[in-house]
Design a protein around this nucleic acid. Structure first.
Lengths: 196, 196
DNA sequence: GCGCGTTATTGAGCGTTGCTCAACAAGCGA
DNA sequence: TCGCTTGTTGAGCAACGCTCAATAACGCGC
């Protein structure tokens, strides 16, 4: 009768808590393997529950993965877009973005690059996040009257930020951080000028 | 005794021909669904053979997928990097790249964006292709003495080309083709200047 | 045309994984 | 203690990746 000596989780959790636990496990696993390799069995074993229970909270594995990706996108949004100061917003945004890549390069890679379009619903989540970042950049520049051409160009600039940021985070020796920031902000200025 | 009335494929093909057939089927399927949903059953049914036979030509499904991706990367390479003229190489490369996206946007998306890092071997293939394009761009600019910083910057510029090219190919009305080319070449020039 | 070795091809079958469903039991009010 | 709600489970099915011994189609010498 001496159960629960070191039970991984107290049985019969309230639903929202269980959901958070499962999404949290998925987020942690996401940093060490691609999302396609996050299997129901592994998550259930890690949570100390049966496979069946996961399907009471998420109708399918795909829906569970979507919940993980949504949570990851929310983290990126929180740490780069929210609570921006009133001055120098573009530079601060870029700095925060690079800081996030420095801390959580794996997470960003897993969510926004690896599975970027395999599933249309996943693509929708990442597209929306990218759109929000583009909007944030445009707002930071005081350019709310964005023409399609300008939005396209800013999106392209953001892709450049992503690519250089990820490569630089993996090998910081290739360039000084300040030089990278200066280069990207300079290119942004140049792009703005070319679109008129 | 009236077999083979309309047999989908003549039985007992020579090995290399069978291989090409299977890779070809995979390439065609790749344009209409993500590679993770290309199942052995579907390919075998399409080819009119049994599942087992596929494993005589590819040791695993993953290896089969790699063969498909390698073939797709070869197509990109052929149509953008080979037989470049001696003058205006950068502009011609960019033009060919955009032309490829206009014709085979789906293929490029499937191979180089969607599954970009889920599998390290897949990532290696795409990384090598991107590296070749960067090398091609550097050679086109007469800059073979590429510092790490310059390579990083050119890689970032290429990401911008990819992003804008893909978005533009999906919605060409957002910008004139010539304006896009001019913008990208102008930004390339600006980037070169900023790296010194 | 007839054996015969080579080998492309197959069918049966196993383990894993996503998913369903009827049944169980933990908590809680009466 | 009874009984209701509901979080939880185990058995089981279908799809899929993969293996292996057996088969049949083709080429070659005669």
């Amino acid at each position: 009768m001496v159960r629960c000596v070191a039970a991984p989780s107290p049985r019969r959790l309230p639903p929202d808590e269980r959901r958070r636990q499962l999404v949290g496990i998925g987020l942690r696993m996401l940093t060490e393997r691609p999302i396609t390799e996050i299997t129901i069995d592994d998550v259930a074993r890690e949570a100390g529950i049966s496979r069946s229970l996961l399907f009471n909270y998420f109708p399918s594995k795909r829906e569970y993965h979507l919940a993980i990706i949504r949570a990851a996108a929310r983290r990126v949004r929180r740490q780069t877009l929210e609570d921006l100061p009133s001055e120098n917003r573009a530079a601060v945004m870029l700095d925060r973005f690079l800081a996030f890549l420095e801390r959580r390069r794996d997470l960003y890679l897993s969510v926004l690059r690896d599975v970027g379009g395999a599933d249309p619903d996943v693509a929708a989540i990442t597209a929306q996040l990218r759109g929000e970042i583009v909007d944030g950049a445009l707002a930071a520049l005081g350019r709310d009257d964005a023409s399609p051409a300008l939005r396209l160009a800013i999106s392209g600039w953001l892709a450049m930020v992503e690519d250089m940021g990820l490569a630089w985070a993996a090998a910081p020796s290739s360039m000084e951080r300040d030089a990278l920031v200066a280069l990207l902000l300079g290119v942004l200025d140049d792009v703005l000028g070319r679109v008129e």
